[in-house]
């Protein structure tokens, strides 16, 4: 089954951490990516800060154009930071892999994927994963 490993945390807190700690966090990501690459296909995404987002607020009726507004509005809660999606034999196995990413900075959710599509560009070489 395809599982997603979803990361939540405080927007901006990671960027404040000293280089060594950030490097330690990224090591977990690199390890997981290496393991997943050996197992087959996977996708991963790290989102930009929420201030770069726009929201399509739902129209009242089907067929109407949505209103495009800036941002999600100011919130102080933790935010969706990014995710992984890969094929795992069991929930157990998905959790085991999610543990590569476990640090004090993120809350990790493991959730099965109902359907998926598309192909993500492989730009892992020059991507800034921070």
């Amino acid at each position: 089954m395809l599982y997603s490993i979803i990361l939540y945390g405080e927007d901006g807190a990671f960027e404040r951490l000293p280089e060594e700690i950030r490097a330690g966090v990224m090591e977990g990501h690199q390890k997981l990516q290496a393991v997943l690459a050996e197992r087959g296909k996977f996708a991963t995404i790290k989102l930009m800060p929420v201030s770069s987002a726009v929201t399509l607020s739902p129209p009242t009726e089907i067929g109407q154009a949505p209103l495009v507004v800036d941002g999600p509005f100011a919130e102080t809660k933790e935010r969706f930071l990014g995710f992984y999606a890969a094929e795992f034999a069991s929930l157990e196995e998905a959790i085991e892999h999610a543990e590569y990413l476990s640090t004090p900075y993120v809350r990790i959710e493991v959730r099965p994927v109902q359907w998926a599509g598309g192909v993500l560009a492989d730009e892992s070489k020059d991507r800034d994963m921070a």
Binding site: E10, A13, F14, R16, L17, P18, T76, T103, Y105
Partner: peptide, 15 residues
């Protein structure tokens, strides 16, 4: 700075 301090710093202006 530890992760706790980073978290405090993020919260500070609003608090």
């Amino acid at each position: 700075m530890t992760w706790l301090e980073a978290s405090f710093a993020e919260c500070r202006p609003r608090a």
